[in-house]
Design a protein around this nucleic acid. Sequence first.
DNA 1: TCCAGGACTTGTTCCTATAGCG
DNA 2: CGCTATAGGAACAAGTCCTGGA
Length: 564
Amino acid sequence: MRWRWWEEEKYEDGIKWKFLEHKGPVFAPPYIPLPKDIKFYYDGKTLSLSPQTEEVASFFAKMLDHEYTTKDIFRNNFFIDWRKMTLEERMVITDLAKCDFTEMFTYYKGKMEEKKNRTKEEKLKLKEENEKLVQEFGFCIMDHHREKIGNFKIEPPDLFRGRGDHPKQGMLKKRILPEDVIINCSKDSKIPEPPSGHKWKEVRHDNTVTWLASWTENIKGSVKYIMLGANSKLKGEKDWEKYEIARKLKNHVEKIRRTYRENFKSKEMKVRQRAVALYFIDKLALRAGNEKEEGETADTVGCCSLRVEHIKLYPELDGQKYVVEFDFLGKDSIRYYNKVPVEKKVFKNLQLFMENKQEGDDLFDRLNTPLLNKHLQLLMEGLTAKVFRTYNASITLQQQLAELTDSDDSIPGRILSYNRANRAVAVLCNHQRAPPKTFEQSMSNLKAKIDARKEQISLTKKELKEAKKEVKENESEKLKKVVESKKKAILRAEEQLMKLEVQATDREENKQIALGTSKINYLDPRISVAWCKKWNVGLEKIYNKTQRDKFAWAVDMTDTDFVF
DNA sequence: TCCAGGACTTGTTCCTATAGCG
DNA sequence: CGCTATAGGAACAAGTCCTGGA
């Protein structure tokens, strides 16, 4: 019997746990210096580096075949941080272009190759050792239950790989020591031991937070945490709450939509901007768009931080009226490009907001996310901008499933319908992916397979005909058996063909769409569980092991008739 | 009221284990 | 049974939103 935490009473306000015991985080392995015969060359001459300098150089050397090392910002940032080397070294090494890391690069490539070519026994041994580590450090005790930790290893030192045009890419992400780490656990628990010769920065006992350990990272100065895994009570409960708030929005959304439409006409510019922004967030599932510190991160935006340069207005386009063209970089510098017809009042308002503004000016200059969220809080308790994304994603899945699922369909057909519904959500949320590098190849492989199967079927059909003819002429038991087996073979092959064809369709449609993110973060799992039960589809066709684990609460509490 | 820091969720990328193939 | 494409999972970056202190 699974621990049904969702049937237990919750703690008083703000208290996350009563007992917490763990072993602390696992630190990155120490740097292993290069063998003597692996040389670094500066300006064509060998130059031996101090261990610390060599370590940082190795981070760069390992990445030599990565696009990052061709980017100026990355190279410059790396070079600045690398040159915090010994004085003697700094005197010599003044130009990155004169640095030759290729021997180091080749050495590490070889190491990787070795790793790949390990024997079964070696691999098994490594696996067992890793399992031991997980058993020791990968779990904690929280309130009488052994729970999995999501990330018990401290991030190793490396060069920072910011996404998009990140101004800090290439900077050295420093090695974290116990002296940097704050431990959080309960007073009456066994306090984790720091590695020998070391001390923790601090040990605290704060049961209003969920983290077990934290440290401050040196790139942005933000705090990083060791937290529980997604299948833990703590995370599961939060997830459940998230979907319950989204379901609550279902009962308020019509009124909220009436209100913001009303507000399109407000005398106050602030109110109009808020209304139009909310319209976008609701209709297009845009993110809130917090303000960001300039120069600290890549230049990306969300709804409230959109600038004039990010939209174009077309009174008429391709036969449609009042079209807005969005083109901006969102989270992770993923491009959002969309042409959407909008209500006339929205269009007119946008024209108004853009009057006398430059490309780089804020579209919603009287609005920011705290202002928007404060307003939303008034409309419904617990409502924030991101709830609309959850709500619209989940409700879309439910609608699409209802629309697409056909009771006449085979199981693979139903799964295709599910994936299509999932896809509709991923498109809404702009969860794109680059088409896999081998996409065309694997697609044509699949097509070839389909053709082969078709060929086989028609051949077997011919053979069946022949066999039937022979039976007519000569009624032997043996021949009758042949006929039967041919029939069966055809049936089997046809089923396989159908499966392959469904697979091909699914893959083609999924070329540029990533389903995972929405499945894990936006779709109320109870919708999927109910659908699987209703249509007799195994849950494992929809969720893999990790996902089933994470959504265990939904599996246990959901009936066929669940409605989001 | 404003802002910075803090806590937690969401998102992509990269590596690896494994399923499915011949 | 070995090979390879792919799914799964770890890692970690990048968002959202809240809080507490000036």
